[in-house]
Structure formats: structure tokens, C-alpha cells
């Protein structure tokens, strides 16, 4: 069953073409890694999935709801689609606990106690229960990103989008975030992950999508992608990031 269906999506800023005829299917329980050189449109594509960025042509359907349809209430859709950002984007004026409960209360209308209980459970899961009373600024980047993942999970998402979740982190903090993501993938969460962490891709991805200049150049099962990438561009890219 298809969870995220991106069909022939094109997007441009004025005369600048950012996405050209992109199509990707993400089935329920699948983990898709999207990679490619910077400026290739990976982040833009993932931002289109929950309607954070509009697109001009094509169609995106998430859990049978069309994202581009003006009749779609985007906030309802977004409440069910978890998103994790490159720069965490925790709310700095709230405590960690408040970060975890605010959308549960304001969007899902959960009572405070219930929201807090859920938040604390997830915080415990990412190993940060002791930090609930702190503000995001008091946490390391890796810790903040784990909180951001917990915040998204608190909404009981049907799928998760990750936009370069580790690229703003110091190297020693990358693994603590990836560990959480691996665990999530192994539990069967549907995930679309923009990342350059090929170790993560090898471990849990079902398919790897390679983008270049706004187009999807390759969409292949993980083993095929790492074994025999068909496109020259993907071969060059892999050679560059895997050579060290």
C-alpha cells in the first residue's frame, strides 16, 4: 500500500526550475533514502510532501490525501506527518517538555496530563528523560535532534520525513541520532530520509533515490544502488562520498 506517492512533480521559482518531473512511491513501512549533491532539490522535494513548499505541476498523495488540492486542509495532514529538520527547530522559548506537548494539546486537543505522559515516554525512549525541564539551548545538537524526533513521534505520525537530520551535527553526535532513526525504521515506520549518511542507507533503507539538478536520476533497491548504480552521475557521487 502506498503511503507517499509523488507523481510527476515539477516546481519552479520564477524561471528557475527546482524540481523536474519527479516521481517516487513510498509504501507503508518502507524506508527511502534520498541523496544527491547539494542543490539537487532533495530538501525541496521532501518539503513538498507535507505542503511546506508549493509545487506547480504533478500530484503528491499522502495516505490517500492529495497535498496540492486546495480543498485539503494542510494542517490536518501535517499533524499526521512527522518532520525532522536539519536545524532541529525546537521552540527555544519553551522547555523540552513543552516542546513535546504543545502540538499534542493545541492540534490534537489531548489533555495536558495525557500529552505530558506521552511526551515523557518518548523522551525516555530517546534517552533524555532527565532533560525535560531544560530549554533547548541547554542541550547539545544531538540531544536537540533526538528531542525533535520525539516531538514528531508524539503526534503518532503515519510516516516521518527527515530533512538532512544529521548534517548540522558534530561528527560525534551523528550516531546517537542515527541510532534512534535506525530503531524507528526497524519498528516499521514509513520514512523518507534526505541524508548523506550512506551507512544508515545500507543498514535500513529499502530503496535509495538519487537526485541531481532537480530530477530523480535513479530510484533503486539499496543493494542495486550501492552495487551497480546505473547512472554515471550516481557513480561519481558515490565514489566521492564513499572514498574516505
Amino acid at each position: 500500500m502506498s503511503m507517499i506517492s509523488i507523481r510527476n512533480v515539477s516546481k519552479h521559482y520564477g524561471s528557475f526550475q527546482v524540481l523536474t518531473d519527479c516521481s517516487v512511491e513510498v509504501n507503508k513501512g518502507e524506508v527511502i533514502v534520498v541523496c544527491g549533491p547539494s542543490g539537487s532539490g532533495k530538501s525541496t522535494l521532501i518539503n513538498c510532501v507535507n505542503g511546506l513548499e508549493p509545487f506547480q505541476a504533478g500530484e503528491i498523495v499522502v495516505n490517500e490525501v492529495s497535498v496540492g488540492d486546495p480543498k485539503t486542509k494542510l494542517s490536518n495532514l501535517r499533524a499526521r506527518v512527522g518532520m525532522v529538520f536539519q536545524h532541529f527547530e525546537l521552540f527555544p522559548h519553551m522547555t523540552i517538555a513543552e516542546n513535546l506537548t504543545i502540538a499534542q494539546e493545541k492540534v490534537l486537543a489531548r489533555p495536558h496530563d495525557q500529552a505530558l505522559e506521552k511526551g515523557m515516554k518518548l523522551l525516555d525512549r530517546v534517552g533524555l528523560k532527565a532533560h525535560a525541564h531544560k530549554h533547548p539551548g541547554e542541550l547539545s545538537g544531538g540531544q536537540q535532534q533526538r528531542v525533535a524526533i520525539a516531538r514528531a513521534l508524539a503526534m503518532d505520525p503515519i510516516c516521518m520525513l527527515f530533512d538532512e537530520p544529521t548534517s548540522a551535527l558534530d561528527p560525534e553526535m551523528i550516531n546517537e541520532v542515527l541510532d534512534v532513526m535506525v530503531e524507528l525504521a526497524q519498528e516499521g515506520m514509513t520514512m523518507m530520509v534526505v541524508t548523506h549518511e550512506m551507512g544508515f542507507a545500507r543498514k535500513v533503507a529499502h530503496r535509495v533515490v538519487f537526485m541531481d539538478k532537480g530530477a530523480i536520476v535513479e530510484d533503486a533497491p539499496k543493494d542495486a544502488f550501492f552495487g551497480t548504480p546505473r547512472s554515471e552521475r550516481a557513480q561519481q557521487f558515490l565514489a566521492k562520498i564513499l572514498s574516505h
Binding site: F85, A103, M155
Partner: peptide
Amino acid sequence: QVAAAYALGI
């Protein structure tokens, strides 16, 4: 920050 709020359905 706004994007994060939107992404949570706010």
C-alpha cells in the same frame, strides 16, 4: 520556526 510549527499541524 514557522515551518516547524506548520509541520506539527499548527
